[in-house]
Design a protein around this nucleic acid. Structure first.
Lengths: 108, 108
DNA sequence: TGCATACGCAACCATTTGATTGCATATAGC
DNA sequence: GCTATATGCAATCAAATGGTTGCGTATGCA
């Protein structure tokens, strides 16, 4: 997994909205995903391309339409491998911050 | 919390590296954070500004230097509020995908 | 006071990004 | 076969992004 592709893919609200839509209902066509969005079909296509490059979406041709599915695995991996590091951090961070604030109050 | 600011802040590898550095050791100065990075001080400043706007970093002036601290709360909130939605998704997503693959194999 | 250090501000620049338009291709259904 | 529908491809463009350089300001210290 290329974590950078995943982070960059998640950076755009339009793409997160597409993921939300696919989370609620998988197998949507491109035209279906364009419904209710203030964007051209080609713009949606580009966003889907980026999501596919990050492996957050998988799609398959089905006749003349293309069906899209959410792949939640990269999000899981981000949560486990990256966010996990910061879940241990709060205690240390708070300790550091506390110490700093104490030093600060010493000066004042 | 503005989730979009957080996602955008996390989208750049240089900024994630800065967060990593502050996670390992809080209270680093700007000059300290520049150490070992192939970037100018001003570039680091801009990244820190973006991290501060997302509330991922807090800083305080201390004499002529500025000390930076990680604030892991926004990451926690992203994990809880946003990733949480997708942690319920796998079963549904896999069911959808399975059904689709079965239909696909029907075609071949 | 004088000077080195640490940081802030602003202009500038190349590249990337997000989106559009126009046209081409392919499939479903009559 | 013909037509409408669904998607693919390419050129184009404005704005955002990431970075630099130059200079200004403020603080620590001899």
């Amino acid at each position: 997994m290329d974590a950078d592709l995943v982070f960059k893919a998640l950076a755009d609200p339009a793409r997160r909205a597409l993921l939300d839509s696919l989370r609620e209902r998988g197998g949507q066509t491109l035209a279906g995903l364009c419904q209710g969005r203030a964007m051209s079909r080609q713009a949606v296509t580009k966003h889907l391309d980026i999501l596919e490059a990050a492996n957050l979406v998988v799609s398959e041709r089905r006749g003349r339409e293309r069906l899209h599915h959410l792949n939640p695995v990269p999000i899981q991996e981000i949560a486990d491998r990256w966010i996990g590091k910061f879940q241990q951090a709060p205690l240390r961070a708070l300790a550091n911050l506390k110490k700093t604030l104490e030093n600060q109050s010493d000066d004042s």
